[in-house]
Amino acid sequence: MPTSSSARSVRRIWLLSLVGAAVWLAAIFLAPWLAGRGRTGAARFIYAAFAPLCHQIPDRCFRLSGHPLAVCGRCLGIYAGFVAGLLLYPLIRGFRRLAVPPAWLFAALTVPMAIDAGAGLLGLWRSPIGLRLATGFAWGTVLPFYFVTGIADYFRTRRDRRMSRALEIGAAKK
C-alpha cells in the first residue's frame, strides 16, 4: 500500500512532467508566432532546436501566422497527446498506484501510427496531415503512463533502498 508521501512524490513528478511538456508544446507554436512578428533570430533558434528531432518538411507542418510550426503534424500529435495523457493521468491512474498500461493497449495505439508511417516511408501511401496528427496523438496519450510510472518508481526504489540500508546499519550497530 503506497504511503501518502509516495503519492505526493508521484504527484510532484506528474506536475513537473506536465509543466515540462506544456513548455515544450508551447515552444512549437512560439517559433512561427515569433517569425510572424519579425523576430527571426529567436524563431530560428527554436526551429533549429527541434530540427534534430523532426524532419520539419513544411508541407507536412501546420501553419501559424503564415509560418510552419516547429515540428510536423505527426510530432505535434505525439507531443499534444503526451500533454493530454498527462492531464488524464490523475483521472485514470491516480497518484496512489503505480502501474504501466497493458501491452495490448500500447500495441493498439502504436499500430495505426506504425502502419501510417511505414506505408509512407515505403511510398505506398501519402496520408493527409490530419491523419498523421490523429495517429501521433493516439500514440502520445499512452506515453505518460509509462514515463510518470517509471520515474516515480525510480525515486520510490531509491528511497526504499536508502531506508533498507539505514535499517541494516541500525541493526549492525545493535
Binding site: R93, V100, T149, D160
Partner: peptide, 13 residues
C-alpha cells in the same frame, strides 16, 4: 519479502 523489495509496477487497466 522485505522493505527493500517493493512490488513491481504491474500492468493496470
Amino acid at each position: 519479502p522485505g522493505p527493500a523489495a517493493p512490488p513491481p509496477a504491474a500492468p493496470g487497466p
